[in-house]
């Protein structure tokens, strides 16, 4: 005991530290914060998981010869990149269920609605990432595939898109990091992800240390990912 405990006690005796980052309180709320972090990760992973195919589809639409598809994609991307995620969450989880009450009958509709809004939001950003990725592939690749008899879509699927994955992995990871942090907005809908958990715990303990705890947990998730992006970009720079 002893040494660590006495340091912890000493720190807690300093008022500012006690209020802001009390070791004792942090230790006691940490398991609860981790519960919230699980939900945060679940939302981010599911959002990205559905956002990627959605974004890929929007990117292919954007590059299509058909004007209708291009227009659809533009409207989608402009709307979700041009409005705050918080407003999108309000629309998805407050406005739509009022307009269409049947939505409220879906069990856990706050959860699924949250995932859906995150997915369509991240899909809009992913679309731009894939569009840039696809456009960066030399046009000779499409020509070679077409000359072999591939249809446009098959050429996209078997030849072009597989080549974009290596190039889009760093920006996609960045997008995931952004989404992970953005899940904190779900607290506005009383979803008990990490940020909301910290708010509850802080009023329960009458102490703001849980917010510091939440920040530390966010950092523990994002810093390895940003390092990973840096590493991938370096490798990509070498191989190109």
């Amino acid at each position: 005991m002893s040494f660590l405990t006495s340091i912890s006690n000493w720190l807690d005796s300093i008022p500012v530290i006690h209020q802001f980052a009390s070791p004792k309180i942090l230790a006691s709320v940490f398991p609860f914060l981790l519960e919230g972090a699980k939900l945060t990760i679940l939302f981010a992973v599911l959002g990205e998981l559905f956002g990627i195919p959605l974004g890929l589809l929007a990117a292919v639409f954007k590059l299509s010869k058909l004007k209708v598809l291009r227009a659809l994609s533009t409207i989608y991307v402009d709307f979700f990149r041009g409005t705050p995620l918080l407003v999108q969450l309000y629309i998805g989880l407050f406005a739509l269920p009022i307009a269409f009450p049947v939505i409220q009958k879906v069990p856990d509709f706050t959860f699924y609605g949250g995932v859906a809004v995150l997915a369509v939001n991240s899909g809009a950003y992913v679309a731009e990432i894939f569009r840039a990725g696809i456009e960066s592939i030399h046009k000779g690749q499409m020509e070679a595939a077409r000359s072999l008899g591939f249809s446009y879509l098959k050429a996209m699927w078997y030849v072009i898109i597989p080549q974009t994955f290596r190039r889009v992995l760093p920006p996609l990871t960045n997008e995931f990091i952004a989404l992970l942090k953005d899940t904190a907005l779900l607290s506005a809908l009383a979803i008990t992800e990490l940020a909301m958990k910290a708010r509850y715990l802080s009023s329960w303990k009458a102490n703001v240390s849980p917010f510091m705890g939440a920040a530390l947990i966010y950092l523990a998730m994002t810093i390895p990912l940003t390092r990973l992006v840096a590493y991938m970009e370096k490798r990509l720079a070498i191989s190109d």
Binding site: A144, L148, Y158, V159
Partner: peptide, 25 residues
């Protein structure tokens, strides 16, 4: 068709380059 700039598919091996069209098309 054979191109000046080869246009091989860089993510596939030589054999996969040769087989992808027969298999997929």
């Amino acid at each position: 068709m054979v191109f000046q700039s080869f246009n091989l598919f860089p993510h596939l091996t030589a054999l996969q380059n040769v087989t992808i069209a027969p298999v997929r098309v």
